[in-house]
Amino acid sequence: MSTTCPRLFEVEALRDGRLTGAERSRFESHLSVCGACAREAQALRALADELRSAGDSADSDELHVRRERTRLLAAFDEGLVPSARAPRLRSWLGAVAAVLVLGALVAAFVRWPVRSAARAALSPAPPEPITVRADSSARWSRQSEAGLERVVLDSGALSIRVDHATSQRRLLVVLPDGELEDIGTTFSVSAAAGHTTRVTVQDGSVVLRLRGSPPIALGAGDAWSPPPLPAVAPSAVAMPSPAASSAALVLPAAPSAKHAVAAVTEGDPSADFRAAMASLDSGDNATAAARFAAFLARHPQNARAEDAAYLRILAFERTGNSAATQRAARDYLARYPHGFRHAEAEALTR
């Protein structure tokens, strides 16, 4: 058996796909009878195997991988921010600087965006996805902006229905003493003498944010009316203050609100996180912030709680609400003084 062969170079050609058709089959027949070529083929295979197995050893540690993941998502998110932050939305939101940290109970989980997109594609959009009925004494106005429908209620009662299957727009009800964010729903809201007097939710859920109080998520069947005492100061947010009926979720604005957290029912962390991410992905940043807050409240020990706390800051940042961003950043720092995103959160508190 010879140790070399004039066709030896073809072994590599075969491996690299340089031989095709008849050329290939002819050389394959040769390979089966030529010892030198067979040894060469084996040597090349062994070299490749060695290369592959040598690369298998080094795995970086879990924490590092997570940290890098967060960094990546934040960078991607940053790239999206300029388009998501319309200047007029930002300036308006700046005016509502007193609005508190958001909260939301995810009453109707957002399905995978794919499916909702498919649904939206199947059904033609009706002309009016948001309907507002006002009582005769109501003083209110309605404004449309890019991606945002704003209803300003001074006094009186409104009954609102939003069909989120056909509308991708956010609906915000501006109240004399706060605001109400809709998350796919039918609800009524009343105001009088500069205060919100009643919110009832028939379907879906809303987040009620009143100045000086933690946000309240109201689900289907919930009704809210102001507590007999004046609104609780922000420092006392641990108390589930405005009396929300049934299972309405009161979110802690600070990590010390342990008992409020404990009162919250268990949910599927993965579904909750996904719902929050879906909101963020769809550009519904206010809802995303509320959902991340809800995630934190429901699953404070979950591995993704820190991600949620950080993404909540980002969601606020994207809405342009700097007061809420700062609060969320402080909340993050209080929860995770040595967190992955400590430096970024620190910068955002100012």
């Binding site: 993941r69 990546l72 998502l73 991607f76 999206l80 965006p113 996904r274 991410m277 963020l280 992905d281």
Partner: peptide
């Protein structure tokens, strides 16, 4: 532009 997809890819 879905952030979640990037997370999953990562």
């Amino acid at each position: 532009g879905q952030l979640g997809a990037l997370g999953a890819l990562y």
